[in-house]
């Protein structure tokens, strides 16, 4: 059993087939893309002492970590695109796409006991983008958060429930779409909820390499 290199499977594999779902007439109202090649980690700072974590983020990615539900985008050497989401008091989620090689969060190491703890969550979540002229209408069937663009603006983050399942929702800086992280074990139910809410609008699903 020497070379056992295992294939990594994306969260929606076996649940979501690429192609058109729901109504077939005209342009799809919703476009969902699964982002399969990424790394995700939780950064857990010491209670009430964000300074070491904030400093590490500035050093490593030249960004100010958000102190309220916001997303900040940055980059560093090997990491072409990284997003940092506020995810609770003294907690952030760091996303890098595509998945970097090596220890991309090395900047957050050190700092001893006062420094942040890092927890890999790459395997535990699925990641999709939701865009299209009816994306907001479809999401209104899934989340109770007000998604009006004046209320949920680019860069805003919401930790909430999507069809009664925990999810992290945010708006990227550019465009009118949404990004969502969900629990891998609930992928099947998440997909069925998306299918149901998008059916009348027509939905295109694709998977990023």
């Amino acid at each position: 059993m020497a070379d056992l290199a295992l294939a990594a499977s994306p969260a929606l594999a076996g649940h979501a087939e690429p192609g058109r779902h729901g109504a077939r007439q005209g342009e799809a109202g919703v476009r969902i893309v699964e982002r399969a090649d990424f790394a995700l980690a939780a950064i857990l700072g010491r209670r009430g002492d964000p300074a070491p974590t904030l400093a590490a983020a500035r050093r490593g990615f030249a960004i100010d970590l958000p102190r309220k539900p916001r997303a900040v985008e940055g980059a560093s050497g090997s990491v072409k695109s990284a997003t940092f989401l506020w995810a609770g008091p003294d907690r952030w989620l760091a996303l890098a796409r595509p998945r970097p090689t090596g220890d991309w969060l090395a900047a957050f190491h050190g700092g001893g006991l006062g420094g942040p703890a890092l927890v890999d969550l790459t395997g535990g979540r699925g990641w999709i983008s939701i865009a299209g002229p009816r994306a907001r209408d479809a999401l209104a069937r899934l989340v109770a958060v007000d998604l009006d663009p004046r209320v949920f603006a680019p860069g805003d983050v919401a930790l909430t429930a999507l069809a009664h399942m925990p999810a992290t929702l945010w708006r990227p800086e550019a465009g009118d779409g949404f990004e969502a992280l969900f629990d891998r074990s609930m992928a099947g139910s998440i997909w069925r909820a998306l299918e149901h809410s998008c059916a009348a609008f027509g939905m295109d699903f694709a998977r990023e390499a």
């Binding site: 010491r46 927890v119 969550l121």
Partner: peptide
């Protein structure tokens, strides 16, 4: 100083 993260779905 204790930090807890639910990793139920992270690990097979």
């Amino acid at each position: 100083d204790v930090r807890i993260e639910n990793v139920t779905s992270q690990w097979a």
